[in-house]
Design a binder for these strands. Structure first.
Lengths: 340, 340
DNA sequence: CCAAAATACGAAAACGTTTGCGTAGTTTGA
DNA sequence: TCAAACTACGCAAACGTTTTCGTATTTTGG
């Protein structure tokens, strides 16, 4: 079929043994320079391409990293993958990418498929619905290198990469307070999510420092459907005691907020200020432009990949430390949180 | 390492030959029901996972499809991949995803890596810089199933999936004309790109039908950098003879246009109307909301995958026909092309 | 009842690499 | 000068599957 010439045929063409050819191509010290040259030029002439599966079978390595994300149409995850791919490609690694669509069952299925060694390592961000972590535990116990980023799983003792969620949420909330907000709402996805917890803590602490009391109705846990979310937010905005500021834990809820605001008479930033975690390149052209907490997505991806590659390519690397590495976000202040 | 139990060990545990176990697991008619049951339950008990590389080596198939795109932070390509993944997953196929970053050299490198059978097929959208197609030709001649979508390569005799580029551009331009535009500019990337040519034809024909003459300066071929593009567009908007309507061949140029407009006194849609090919979910919350030609991204991905899977899973499938399959776009009229 | 067919399984080869081991022939060293 | 070391290569096994072929046992048919 598509398979080209094998090392045996290449050896035959050279009147050499396959083992000699293999060693020559791998630049072994046991082979003379003259032979190496002959082999290399013949390999080029015949366009010899080593079969990756034979190699993988033999070496029990695939030179492949699996990336598992909950959403593909998302600038943050896209940038993270770009970062991972950059480092991976430098070291000859390939990327298998899987989208769980925020579905735990799909996540379980994918991880179960990855048990057979198809990938040498996994880098992932869990679903907003992932509370039972036995499937992750299983992978980790099998010894498959596993790192998390952004939406991490605390129970698994491995290295995790996140941004300064607590601090950014604190600063973001504080920014709203300084701009005059008194009634600040917090939008997020699932309560179980690691980032939700940290960002929520930051939000609460900022309120406390300003002697503001968090209203129960101001913590909004949203669903998967954008339409439903817009409805939820609209209700909040139309309620008797509506917020005058919003901090959103994820990009798409800020978008839903813009959608909802359009259905009211409210004007951003006069009646409502909003800040969001986001990696949108177009935050600046929204009207009003959107104040964002921009996560260092590419860097996170690069760091994940660097750590993995180090473990995969060097001989006796220790297991990943059970630690959280924090890469800070940057707040971009724009019109949506202006005073007037 | 991460590799679990092999079929030999499983066979030993059952006092059977590996061949029998293999056949039992593959539901061969040569194995009795009783034995099959024993094998299956033991396999589950010992958590047997077949080694994919041994299988691939044996079968000369990888159950893997490579996807090559020019840009990852792009709603269109993200949706297409979602579509591909959906169908692929249904059939047990995995996805290797590569981003060329609009760089031909990277594209060549990636395709060269894919020559060794790591993937059973390739679905791709070429770089805006791809004019020499010898690397694509080589892959195709090797017999590796290859389909294109959106940015296709006409020289390669295979199946291509696109939207109705000509017609959509024609209709889009015509829409601008009917809304009163007299001086319509066309924004795109490279001249070499298939979609550019078709969409440009549609633009020109619509102008001709309306007895409008296309000004040379109104055809803007943009670069890779968003900042440069914004500059280019700004210059166009500030020129003596500025356009009063814009049709953009790609999403990000519409965004650059919004950026550029912000630096002028022009108001959309009063002074300038704009329509763009785009898959942004947030076109509706831009201010003014953006009229779009929405490509059927998921469907395109699904159709690509279906065609590939058919060829890969059925015994004696013919090569892909040298044809172009068109899946129509839909125009969403919003404020950016309103009359006043 | 007996040859022919069907059933159910095992032995071994093959896919394409890499690598441990063996060994001719050459070089080294005291 | 001659054993020891080195150089440069070949042989064969191994990775984990699947599949061709072979065969012992049972079943079928007239």
């Amino acid at each position: 079929m598509n398979s080209g010439i094998s090392i045996k045929e290449l050896a035959a063409a050279l009147n050499l043994a396959p083992s000699t050819v293999s060693r020559a191509l791998n630049d072994s010290y046991e082979i003379s320079e003259a032979t190496k040259q002959k082999v290399i030029s013949m390999a080029e002439k015949l366009n010899y391409q080593p079969n990756p599966f034979a190699r993988s079978l033999r070496a029990n390595k695939s030179r492949t990293i699996a990336v598992v994300i909950p959403e593909r149409i998302n600038n943050f995850f896209a940038k993270v993958i770009d970062g991972i791919e950059e480092i991976a490609q430098e070291h000859g690694y390939h990327l298998l990418v899987y989208n769980t669509h925020e579905d735990v069952e799909k996540e379980k299925k994918i991880l179960s498929l990855l048990q057979n060694g198809r990938a040498d390592a996994i880098v992932m961000s869990v679903t907003s619905q992932t509370s039972d972590t036995s499937h992750l535990q299983k992978i980790h116990e099998r010894g498959l290198p596993l790192v998390f980023f952004d939406r991490i799983c605390g129970e698994i003792p491995t290295t995790k990469f996140i941004t300064n969620d607590y601090e950014s949420a604190y600063k973001g909330t504080n920014h709203l307070i300084q701009q005059g907000c008194k009634k600040i709402a917090f939008l997020t996805l699932s309560k179980d999510l690691s980032i939700t917890k940290e960002r929520y803590r930051g939000y609460l602490d900022a309120l406390k420092m300003a002697n503001l009391t968090p209203e129960p109705t101001f913590s909004l846990y949203c669903k998967h459907s954008d339409e439903d979310n817009t409805e939820l937010i609209l209700k909040l905005l139309q309620s008797e005691n509506r917020p005058d500021g919003i901090i959103s834990s994820v990009e798409k809820l800020a978008i839903s907020t813009y959608q909802a605001v359009r259905k009211t008479n409210l004007k951003i930033p006069y009646d409502l200020k909003i800040i969001t975690f986001s990696n949108m390149s177009i935050a600046g052209i929204l009207n009003p432009s959107l104040t964002t907490i921009t996560q260092p997505a590419e860097t996170i991806g690069q760091e994940c990949a660097k750590l993995l590659i180090k473990k995969l390519t060097r001989p006796r690397q220790p297991d990943f430390l059970d630690q959280i590495i924090v890469i800070p976000s940057q707040i971009q202040i724009r019109e949506s949180t202006m005073v007037r």
